[in-house]
């Protein structure tokens, strides 16, 4: 278990599609712990995808505990090979990313979401999420397809300078 460096653009792993994990073995378990610990090490970080720490696998961690925009909250969790079961009611909101320095952007994302995958224990896991937790999961899911919020914003006037990051 370790806090890993978070990669930033233009690192190629951030724009590549990540590979399926398939089986949650010891290595995957170690990845889950690294994701959780690295996420927890950055106070403003509510989610982290494996490509952001240089691992091209379909895995992410999310934790929206205590966030003022959160409604549903499953605490800190890791999902392997996640798929969207249903996504509804998109709403725009501004988001940033630890891998995209200096900018934020307005992105429309579903506010009601059901996502399925394998949990950190390797068992199938299905979660029903809304509001900010749904946004966080969809942001991380995009990372697994090599997509950043910059690829989702509505246009030139939906990207904004970020005063502070890290």
């Amino acid at each position: 278990m370790a806090v890993r460096p978070v990669l930033v653009l233009p690192h190629p792993v951030l724009t590549a599609r990540a590979a399926e994990v398939g089986l949650v073995d010891d290595a995957a378990g170690a990845l889950a712990l690294d994701l959780l610990e690295t996420m927890a090490a950055s106070p403003a970080c509510v989610g982290l995808a494996a490509p952001q720490i240089g691992v091209g696998l379909r895995a992410f961690a999310v934790d929206v505990t205590g966030h003022r925009k959160a409604r549903s909250c499953h605490g800190p969790f890791v999902l392997f090979d996640p798929v969207v079961v249903s996504a509804q009611s998109p709403e725009p909101a501004r988001e940033g990313c630890m891998s995209v320095p200096d900018l934020t952007g307005d992105v429309a994302r579903a506010t009601r979401l059901v996502v399925a995958g394998l949990g950190a224990d390797g068992r199938p896991l299905e979660l029903e999420l809304d509001a900010f937790e749904a946004r966080a999961v969809l942001h991380e899911l995009d990372h697994l397809d090599g997509l950043l919020f910059l690829d989702r914003v509505a246009g030139p006037h939906a990207v904004f300078p970020r005063k502070v990051y890290r």
Partner: peptide
């Protein structure tokens, strides 16, 4: 419409 940003170190 076009805007560009130079970011990163």
């Amino acid at each position: 419409d076009l805007s560009t940003h130079l970011i990163g170190g």
